[in-house]
């Protein structure tokens, strides 16, 4: 029941979200070691901040990027969630929204941008192309699912997804962040090189 309280999102019921079993499993795994109450509440505070301030790196390659622009526009207004601060520099972003097909030529660039991001960082795969190669999965030049390149936190299916579906996915990500433990293991989910290349 702790999960329910922690992952509450305004105007949404717990049961209206899909894939809750994953979060429950995550909480069980994290609680196995146990944590102090003080540490726990500090964690909650930090997670509140982190989940409400997801600045995305715009990584639009094709169609979904246009829907992302629509998301930022007046009708759907990302700003309501505080997502509107899209950063163009990977250093300042908290999550990378991969919008559109990732080709073989683009894959190293995506990986590099991901490496350049500051921890803690998240990846949202938007649209069929990023999830599985989508319409182009039989092509010779398309990566069939970006999970081969970077760890993905949330998948938003659609071709392209509706703006509302974007929000649904973003709220899923917020919920995932809320149950994580910042003071234990959120950073460095992957081993990373000591020094980063410059971004030119």
């Amino acid at each position: 029941m702790e999960v329910k309280k922690k992952t509450a999102i305004r105007s949404m019921q717990y049961d209206e979200f899909k894939n809750n079993d994953y979060l429950e499993q995550m909480v069980r795994d994290l609680n196995r070691d146990g944590a102090g109450i003080i540490l726990g509440s500090v964690d909650d505070l930090i997670n509140w901040g982190r989940s409400n301030s997801l600045w995305s790196l715009t990584f639009g390659t094709s169609c979904c990027a246009i829907e992302f622009m629509a998301l930022g526009a007046a009708r759907y207004d990302m700003a309501r969630f505080g997502f509107e601060v899209t950063r163009n520099s990977p250093r300042q972003a908290d999550m990378i929204m991969v919008l559109g097909t990732i080709t073989h030529k683009m894959a190293p660039v995506l990986r590099r941008l991901y490496d350049q991001m500051a921890e803690p960082k998240y990846v949202v795969a938007v649209g069929g192309c990023t999830i599985s190669g989508g319409p182009f999965r039989k092509s010779y030049h398309v990566v069939n699912g970006i999970d081969q390149i970077v760890p993905v936190d949330v998948y938003i299916p659609g071709c392209p997804p509706r703006p509302e579906a974007f929000y649904y996915g973003m709220m899923q990500l917020q919920r995932k962040i809320k149950v994580q433990k910042f003071l234990g293991g959120v950073n460095r989910q992957e081993k990373k090189p000591k020094d980063m290349d410059s971004n030119d």
């Binding site: 901040g49 908290d94 500051a118 803690p120 950073n187 980063m196 290349d197």
Partner: peptide
């Protein structure tokens, strides 16, 4: 509380040191 949340987030972000 949007901006305080942002501040809290920024405070907990990693500071990257650059090669070169």
């Amino acid at each position: 509380l949007q901006v305080p949340a942002d501040v809290l987030k920024i405070l907990t972000k990693e500071i990257i040191s650059l090669k070169g």
